[in-house]
Design a binder for these strands. Sequence first.
RNA 1: GCCCGGAUGGUGGAAUGGUAGACACGAGGGACUUAAAAUCCCUUGGCCAUUGCGGCUGUGUGGGUUCAAGUCCCACUCCGGGUACCA
Length: 923
Amino acid sequence: MDYNYREIEQRWQAYWRSHHTYRTSIDPSRPKYYVLDMFPYPSGAGLHVGHPLGYIASDIYSRYKRLQGFNVLHPMGYDAYGLPAEQYAIQTGQHPEVTTTQNIARYREQLDKIGFCYDWEREVRTCDPAYYKWTQWAFLKMFKSYYDTVQDKARPIEELVAYFEAHGSQDCPAHTSTPQEFTAEQWRAMSKCEKNDVLMNYRIAYRGNTMVNWCAKLGTVLANDEVSEGVSIRGGYPVEQKMMSQWCLRVSAYAPRLLRDLDTIAWSESIKETQRNWIGYSEGAEMTFPVAGSDAELLIFTTRADTIFGVTFMVLAPESDYVDVVTTPAQRAAVEAYLDEVKHKTERERMIDKRVSGVFSGSYAINPVTGKEIPIYISDYVLAGYGTGAIMAVPAHDSRDYAFARHFDLPIIPLIEGADVSQESFDAKEGIMMNSSNERLQLNGLQVKEAIARTKEYIAEAGIGHVKVNYRLRDAIFSRQRYWGEPFPIYYDEDGQPQPLDENLLPLQLPEVDKFLPTEDGEPPLGRAQNWTTADGHPLELCTMPGFAGSSAYYLRYMDPRNDEALVSREANEYWRQVDLYVGGTEHATGHLIYSRFWNKFLYDYCYVCEAEPFKKLINQGMIQGRSNFVYRIKDTNTFVSYNLKDKYDVTPIHVDVNIVSADALDLDKFRAWRPEFATAEFILENGKYICGWAIEKMSKSMFNVVNPDDIVERYGADTLRLYEMFLGPVEASKPWDTNGIDGVNRFLKRLWALFYSRDEFVVSDDKASADALKSAHKLIKKVTADIEAFSYNTSVAAFMICVNELTTLKCHNREVLEPIVVLIAPFAPHIAEELWHALGHDTTVCDAQWPVCNEDYLVESTVKYTVMIKGRPRYNIEVPADTPSDQVQAIALAHEGAAKWLEGNAPKKVIVVPNKLVNIVI
RNA sequence: GCCCGGAUGGUGGAAUGGUAGACACGAGGGACUUAAAAUCCCUUGGCCAUUGCGGCUGUGUGGGUUCAAGUCCCACUCCGGGUACCA
């Protein structure tokens, strides 16, 4: 009986399905383990071989943990809201729900063929009303909350209202980016609308007037992580900055915790570092500079308080509120012209155009330490969104200020001994201060770090500023002017004020529309919906939520996916707690992985979840790139020349479908059938074959290098695909897909099969196995267990190959040896393992077996070989009984005839014995 | 610019400071076969010597530490990823 993967895989997949083998439930008697994949967006192209890489890795770990006795939660679902389905809907009129459902069915079919151990009864889809009910619910909670900076957590907004009633805004412990000042009396005197407007500045989900990334082509705003280098990640369309009123999430309030708690999770240093950079902690000082001849003061932020003596001008962001205050009548026209120019530049243009630009405001500020008057400029190199939107410029020690000073011919005062600022600024935070002392503050002679500390002390004493920590992390813009997303549970009252929908009315279902385009008057697509109002006729919010809304808490929903009463029950959450192992790509480092942590922390503040971090350990699988193949057509002919002969001709490389190429050899008949124009193709072959050229490129339809897992499964079986993807290299590494080595893995499975079956006969015996065979098997147990724990699956697969080769050579067909090996291979190649397990006479599935334990006794050697090194090279070997003390090993090594030969009469200077390995004799 | 990774045969990749190149692909040779496929065996970093068992060299470059360095330290080159007027 040959290894018939097709029949085996179909049979066992059907068995698992009908027996609910992978159904999971809460079982307090067993320890839990939660393994999660980043759920996919079901695109129309289906899965390619890159998708399952991470899924296979996590599946192996899930099965391994299960065999070790853990109760493993390993769910899967779909991130079903997204732009492509909507774009497709706009083009074809096909409802996104229809295409999404179709795509999900296709994904499921493809996933099923690979033999994953998902508990599909826990599947979630973000576009399912029963699911997004809880996305909306969380949003409502955020709307009804503020962030208390003293308790350091989210609290109900009523508590803030009570505070305002009693104290006004004095020492208000709430996080806001637009502080306001009012007394308790003033608060009480406010109208309902005024109060609402004030509270909006504190809510965690709030409506704010902010600079947003507006993508005209997509007709929607985008979050910072959805934009890269001035264009949208999806589609690559230009993005511009625009002031708009949008729903936002106060993620910035959580910046300190998001930063701090990175130390508590087992993620790769690189992704933690990316998050640290994105959060952007920066400790500095805020200082006030009085404006000469006015009551106004400029508040600035700096990390280089020590350079206060080198401030020769001030710069305001064009959007800064100070601009109006400091612009003198004489300069007004020039300033307005500049503001107008800046406004018409898109973000992209601003980035490309690095030229210095700016305008003098007409006013002067007074340096609070030196008392000198310095001019105030306006320039777009200062950002409104960071710090205070105003800076003190120190051209000698900041390259941007330096460029500005040179352009406008402003003085440059060096402050660090030995720094040459004639050509460029000296930005490093090191050196000894000079030109930095007067009767108020003396910094000369201090190191930069000391000077920073001293200046901070001084400005606090003098009442001109205070120490301040800034974060780069922005609040998340949460509105999208799109159809295919979660509707907001928000309506607008008579005064046009946003109001929360009653929780009992959730889910607020996405309405039908006639077209998926914006309305004629520029409203989002939901403006087309009939009766998009509350029961009493109030209009509902027209925007929908962004993609990350539904993906922020999905891991919680898997714990209790059909619960109507809560996102997750306390019982389920306290059992499953958090994701123990999360597997996914690095591309989510600054998006999903920040939003999820934020969302989880918000829920944690209200004790809806019991863990402060959602994902304990994170593994980032690499990307599988495409390996494109080329044929070389001789110019102006229909003749194609093989790769190694192509240099003799004038050729054009043409992408050829990799699916008609095998090990770089072109299938000529398939090529002729591939496209009509190649039907009459002629070939110049080498060694009877047409060899194609190749290149590593992104896997994409246009390069004809997309390989579907289905094709591999069809040709080699799912177990071969699984093993091969793991064998290709470390899970974390990006690598090109290359089928050149797949035969080796397939051969390995056939050899494994041959240990059980010879021709049609089952040849496993119950006899006692040889010591060598047992040693081989137990070595494997040890190696594979250690490798899986370290996610080193490629070396595991190699170890399997070695072991099977050894057993084949030993002609070992003993149950004692083969049975543990079947269990070991089960996580990697579950179908063949199941079949062999069954053949060994077991009624249960291999999934319920016990992970074997290495018996060290089998590995103990009676003798140990030492390599003897003389003059730095291995010269001869000695074999001594195990546990021989090293001085005796040394004596034996020196007594060997080889010693005399290689020492050539020299006395050994030094002898090093490395236990169980080698003896190094130095002469 | 800044912050992270990385660089090992023809290829993918192995190597707790201890005989570099595991395992696999590819290539070459052989066995079995009328033949092919499949399977099995041998060789395979490079150079030299192959009627001898061997010698030299070798992990991006240049230094260093060490009895011993792919591995640790310093400097540099190149490649990949992230991020950027963040004061």
